[in-house]
């Protein structure tokens, strides 16, 4: 029985580790801040959540103790990760970081320009 429990915990922790490594690889490899933000804000979140779930199952199975703070931490990371990704993206755009030169469309710049013209008229 302990073998099955160990396999479950290990599965969670190893998949979380793999996702974290993939996120790092993406942050190093991708060309500009916005695409890097994709990798960092999605893959790291699920990676950390899986590792925390693994830790929760470990303490539940082997120490007979259900840690509710881990559940709170998982919920907190799940709620705040998209918010911080969005905030960094908006701050980058507003502080004038250029998109990657192979980007195909930028409708935000077009609409902002339109709005500015509308105001000046």
């Amino acid at each position: 029985m302990t073998a099955i429990y160990e396999i479950i915990v290990m599965l969670f922790i190893l998949s979380g580790t793999f996702l974290t490594l993939a996120a790092t690889f993406g942050v190093i490899r991708l060309p500009d801040i916005y695409t890097r933000n994709h990798a960092a804000s999605k893959a790291t979140t699920l990676g950390a959540m899986l590792i925390l779930l693994g830790a929760m199952f470990y303490f539940l199975f082997f120490e007979d103790h259900f840690n509710s703070r881990l559940v709170l931490a998982i919920l907190f990371i799940f709620m705040t990760a998209p918010v911080s990704g969005h905030l960094i993206g908006r701050a980058a755009y507003n502080s004038g970081v250029k998109l990657w030169n192979k980007s195909v469309a930028d409708e935000l710049a077009r609409d902002r320009k339109k709005m500015k013209q509308g105001k000046s008229i």
Binding site: V9, I13, G16, T17, T20, A23, T24, V27, I33, R36, N37, A40, S41, T44, T45, G47, A48, I51, L52, G54, A55, Y58, L70, A73, I77, A81, S84, I88, A91, A92, S95, V97
Partner: peptide, 26 residues
């Protein structure tokens, strides 16, 4: 190259630190 890049990496570092602590406590 830019400051937002560094902020993205720092944010990811914080979340990775959480994972390190979880594994350490196991």
């Amino acid at each position: 190259p830019t400051t937002p890049d560094r902020v993205v990496a720092l944010d990811a570092l914080g979340i990775t630190l959480v994972a390190v602590i979880a594994i350490l406590s196991i």
